[in-house]
Design a protein around this nucleic acid. Structure first.
Length: 494
RNA sequence: GGGCCGUUAGCUCAGCGGUAGAGCAGUUGGCUUUUAACCAAUUGGUCGAUGGUUCGAAUCCAUCACGGCCCA
């Protein structure tokens, strides 16, 4: 580093000062030349034909490696080499000799092809654009230290093609989801991130304070109650892709801020949502990966097959050794749950006991996509009751590889029932359940004006991207995952 | 919150009670159609932090910090 600072001093004394006037060469129609464009266009040309063409190109990028007279350049679209011929003039040789690995450099030369078939620019002009003061990590091993990869994501992106690909896939997923919904006449909206009353999910919120109004505000745990107000307002198909914040622990599946898609669809029910979700996921695999076969951590998943749809008791029978009689017997379920180390509350009804057993014994065993349906009303305070059994709801959760990917239901649009459900939640809150919901009087007022029959769903974008990129941790799909700050996390002198 | 594992040069790692090591990167020189380029020489360290045991600690013990995996 001291050496490089010295070089920078030398460059400055010769008038070099982080130039900002560089432009890449272009076609006559203005198409900018990039490594990927040149590879695609000229990669197949014969060496002699290419040299006869004598195409002069100007490119810039980060100097990644020197191999004899070749300099490996990495830019946004890919890589290409510069070549410094033995007979090059002294000024050019001196300029290139000043370069260090990691510098951002520019060069002009004719596009040629090596004996092994790689394209390169035979340099005639060169200039330094940005001096790198810090050396790059090991060329071959890259950075293996996960902590360093997360804390200095820029280094991870410079060094690891796989990491760059993950975030490209993430961008494509979000973009494809938007396109999918817009094609179906859904409208993207933005609702508040700061809530006076946290709502829409069972989770502990982050609290902040508004100085001018001298009141607490909560970072949203879900946008649900605001999006449903919009369906009351007459926007029949709305969606939002944005961050939620939950004040919970960190794990390979949890980050305090994470990205959710939520969408609401008037005159649809939870079965329509399941159909739409299957179509969406299948299409995403095809568009982003080019196949409906996804390998996640060694397990092959086929998204082309219809997704299983199982009620909670059906899932228990399918995935555990429990008997048909025991599934309907509260005492047997409670005993089994206690055997699993679950603290069973006396207030739990049959549906809740079944659902808790699902979470304890089945969730982790699921590999291929499974829609779990008809959750107990007790754990679904915003979902419509099932017409045949008011203890259950018209709800589903989609599980893939043991993880909840989506959650949706026919919306509860009966204001009186919703008010009762809120009251039951407030009772839990008063008992000390920090994840229970608050009573949202304005939301009840909205329902009293009338919400059309509607179905709504949330899809965890981070977990979806994990599946599609074979990422074992949510931190691998977040550019800047939350980490505990380090005491010495200031500027570090090398 | 609990258990296990880890933290040594810019990066990847070895060393596990007796003088702090290797490869890559860096520096100097050579080589000029290389592909983890190669050859020669060479610089570089508060062994995560603090305390303890010991004649002697990177190494053993304790506490703390940060990270990873598993569990709640």
């Amino acid at each position: 580093m001291a050496w490089r600072r010295g070089k920078l001093e030398g460059l400055r004394s010769h008038g070099w000062d982080f130039p900002n006037d560089f432009k890449r060469s272009c076609d006559a129609d203005g198409t900018e030349h990039t490594a990927a464009l040149l590879q695609a266009r000229y990669g197949d040309w014969e060496k002699a034909a290419l040299e006869a063409e004598g195409l002069r190109v100007t490119l810039a990028g980060r100097l990644m490696n020197r191999r004899g007279p070749f300099l490996v350049l990495q830019e946004g679209s890919g890589s290409i080499q510069f070549y410094l011929a033995k007979g090059a003039e002294d000024g050019l040789r001196d300029t290139v000799a000043q370069w260090d690995i990691g510098d951002i450099v520019a060069g002009t030369g004719t596009l040629e092809k090596s004996g092994k078939g790689d394209l390169y620019l035979n340099l005639t002009e060169a200039r330094l654009l940005t001096k790198a003061l810090r050396p790059l990590p090991d060329q071959y091993y890259g950075i293996a230290d996960t902590e360093l990869r997360y804390r200095r994501r820029y280094l991870d992106l410079i060094m690891n093609e796989a990491s760059r690909d993950t975030f490209r896939v993430r961008s494509q997923v979000v973009s494809a989801v938007r396109r999918f919904l817009e094609e179906r006449r859904f409208m993207e909206v933005e609702t508040p991130m700061m809530h006076v009353i946290p709502g829409g999910a069972a989770a502990k919120p982050f609290v902040t304070h508004h100085n001018a109004l001298d009141m607490p505000l909560f970072l949203r745990i879900a946008p649900e109650l605001y999006l449903k107000r919009l369906t009351v307002g007459g926007f029949e198909r709305v969606f939002e892709i944005n961050r939620n914040f939950r004040n919970e622990g960190l794990s390979t599946k949890h980050n305090p801020e994470f990205t959710m898609l939520e969408f609401y669809w008037a005159y649809a029910d939870y079965r329509d949502l399941m159909d739409l979700t299957e179509t969406l996921l299948r299409g995403l695999c095809e568009q982003v990966l080019g196949t409906t076969t996804v390998t996640y951590q060694g397990t092959v998943l086929d998204f082309a097959k219809p997704f299983a749809r199982l009620t909670v008791p059906e899932a228990l029978l399918a995935y555990t050794d429990i008997s048909a009689a025991a599934v309907q017997d509260p005492a047997a379920l409670a005993a089994r749950l206690q055997g699993q180390g679950v603290k069973v509350a006396s207030s739990w009804g049959l549906g809740r006991l079944q659902f808790e057993l699902f979470e304890a014994e089945v969730e982790d065993k699921i590999t291929d996509p499974v829609f779990l349906t008809q959750h107990p009303t007790e754990v679904s305070p915003l979902a419509r009751r099932n017409a045949d059994n008011p203890e259950l709801t018209d709800r589903f959760e989609l599980f893939i590889m043991g993880r909840e990917i989506a959650n949706g239901f026919s919306e509860l649009n009966d204001p009186e029932d919703q008010a009762e459900r809120f009251k039951a939640q407030v009772a839990l809150l008063d008992e000390g359940d920090e994840e229970a919901m608050h009573y949202d009087a304005d939301y009840i007022t909205a329902l009293e004006y009338g919400m059309p029959p509607t179905a709504g769903e949330g899809i965890g974008i981070d977990r979806l991207v994990m599946l599609l990129t074979d990422a074992p941790s949510i931190r691998d799909v977040l550019l800047f995952p939350h980490l505990r700050p380090k005491a010495a996390d200031g500027p570090d002198p090398i």
